[in-house]
Amino acid sequence: MLQLQNLGKSYKTGDDALKGVNLEIPDGQIVGLIGPSGAGKSTLIRCVNRLVEPTTGKVILNDVDVTTLSAGGLRKERRKMGMIFQEYALVDRLTIMENVLSGRLGYVGFWKSFLRKYPQSDVDEAFRLLERVGLDHMVDKRADELSGGQKQRVGIARALIQDPEVLLIDEPTASLDPKTSRQIMRLIAELCKERNLSTIVNIHDVALAQMYVERIVGLQLGEIVFDGPPEGLTPDVLTQIYGEEDWEATIDEVSDDIDDDINEDGIDSAKNTDKVAKDITEAVSAP
């Protein structure tokens, strides 16, 4: 259970990015956080693990108040919070395996991590996760050689190897093509169910959010203006969150797409898409 109580953040410039947000996420629930750019979505997610220091309020993870912890205590608590980033945020010049294992940094000492001497149990878990996300055949490739979808799956494996209780996901699909986006979102949804994780997904694509999350929170100017099931997103609500626009098309699109999207061999086709995507990229960048 993750609780945000009256969480607020004002930047030095005087901007109030968050204004007293209250939110309660039970174990195993995926919450999609939507809202226009600048609504404070990224700030909210980063306040939870204090990559951004909140100015007011509390973040309570299973009875521990994260906001009052010392540096050492915060590190221990961060281990329980896996984070997945928009631009993947893999360390480009490390291999896939090193990137995944970096999720264990909070558990191993400096010299062990520096010499890459991780406990065998961690290495086993890394292989298992890479297999789960379909990348165990390329463990020693460097992260910057991967396609976007592959990178994001490494990012997911890195978050999961922390053995987290909470997942914080910042725009996981913003840099991906539509098909890969769905594969990634589906993978995230499945993994959260498997592991019973409380999850906040910060997402721009409303239609995509409606497909895979069970609860939507709409943020506008640092305040929650909507909290409810995906079906509750009527044109009126969307207008309230984003402003005036013709929303019918967005919502229609959702119901159309859901059926043909679900296929059995998710991972395999994901590989293919990545390959196709890579081929296309190469074709485009070739002189």
Binding site: E98, D124, E131, D136, V139
Partner: peptide, 14 residues
Amino acid sequence: MSTASPSRTWKRPP
């Protein structure tokens, strides 16, 4: 490769 044994060791590639 796809049938990973339960204990695979890993070393940083040189």
